[in-house]
Simulated scan of single mutants.
Amino acid sequence: MSILLLDVDGTLIDSLPGIQRGFRHTLDQLDWPHPDQEFTDHIAGPPMETTLRSLGMSPAMAQEGLGIYLEYTRRGGWADATSFPGMLDLLRRWKSEGLTLATATSKGEAFARLILEREGFLEHIDFLGAAQEDGPRRHKSAVIDHVLSTNGWRVDTSDILMVGDRSHDIEGAAEHGIDTVAVAWGYGTPVEWASAARTAHTPEDLEGIVHDWLATRG
């Protein structure tokens, strides 16, 4: 079995516009000053409460902010996103080649399902691994553990490859002994990608990297 763990935000889906609007709405509701644009350009990926804590909020206020953000997302913010060009076709090819595909996203499970279904990805995904909107499974390592445990994929880690765009994808996978291919069209930086096994700059580049990975496994 060859398994690809796929991040969603910044890898399959360009969700930054909706995340930014929800983030700013949350700050306004909390009467908290907005950070600069550079900060806001890199908020997609980690759990929202982690981002809010990084602004100096207390744990209690960050949890209140998470609730505000999730309510904004439920009211339609989840739909403010589009798929990255070329990624849906790539998933179709991977499935036709017999790869097992699972998401491993810090996005809430219901929101991930909605956007992946609308954009046509869901039918090609064998298992939807996502964070809990109201529960302990929030960080990437916990999501990956959920994916592996639920499916009984406690296999040789050389059988699994993570694809993501941020440092938390790389670090979360590494906690399970899994290598990551960083994708440069997402929201990360070259500094973040430096710790990945490889970096893909286009979907075609990613397809070649996965092909090489499969070849090394025989």
Results as ranks from 00 to 15, higher is better:
Trp32Lys: 07
Trp213Arg: 08
Ile19Gln: 04
Asp159Arg: 13
Ala194Thr: 10
Met48Gln: 02
Glu123Phe: 10
His124Lys: 06
Leu114Arg: 11
Pro136Ile: 09
Ile144Lys: 08
Gly108Ala: 13
Gly108Pro: 03
Ala131Leu: 09
Ser54Gln: 11
Leu4Arg: 04
Gly76Asp: 03
Ala104Trp: 03
Arg92Val: 09
Pro203Met: 09
Leu52Arg: 05
Gly10Tyr: 02
Glu123Cys: 15
His34Arg: 15
Met57Cys: 13
Ala215Pro: 00
Gly208Gln: 09
Ile209Leu: 12
Glu64His: 12
Val143Tyr: 02
Asp179Tyr: 00
Leu91Ala: 05
Ile209Phe: 00
Arg138Lys: 15
Leu66Cys: 05
Val143Arg: 06
Val143Asp: 00
Asp134Glu: 12
Thr157Met: 06
Arg137Leu: 14
Thr199Val: 14
Asp41Val: 04
Leu55Asn: 05
Glu64Trp: 03
Leu101Ile: 14
Phe121Leu: 13
Gly22Ser: 08
Asp14Arg: 07
Asp41Pro: 00
His139Ala: 11
Ser2Pro: 12
Met162Ser: 09
Thr103Tyr: 03
Ala200Pro: 04
Ser195Asp: 11
Val143Glu: 04
Ile209Tyr: 01
Ile3Trp: 01
Thr82Gly: 03
Asp134Ala: 09
Gly65Ala: 01
Arg138Glu: 15
Glu97Gln: 15
Glu171Ser: 14
Gln29Cys: 15
Arg92Trp: 00
Met48Thr: 00
Gly10Ser: 11
Ser141Phe: 04
Ile115Met: 09
Val155Met: 13
Asp80Pro: 07
Leu161Met: 09
Ala131Tyr: 02
Glu64Gly: 07
Leu88Ala: 14
Pro203Val: 10
Ser141Arg: 12
Arg24Tyr: 08
Glu123Ala: 15
Glu109Asn: 07
Gly186Val: 02
His34Pro: 00
Leu88Trp: 09
Ala215Ser: 09
His168Gln: 10
Gly177Val: 04
Met57Ser: 12
Ser167Ala: 14
Asp156Val: 07
Gln37Arg: 11
Met61Cys: 06
Arg21Lys: 15
Phe39Asp: 05
Glu175Met: 08
Leu4Cys: 05
Leu148Asn: 04
Glu175Ser: 11
Asp36Gly: 12
Thr199Phe: 02
Ala110Tyr: 09
Glu171His: 13
Ser158Cys: 14
Gly135Ser: 11
Ile125Asn: 01
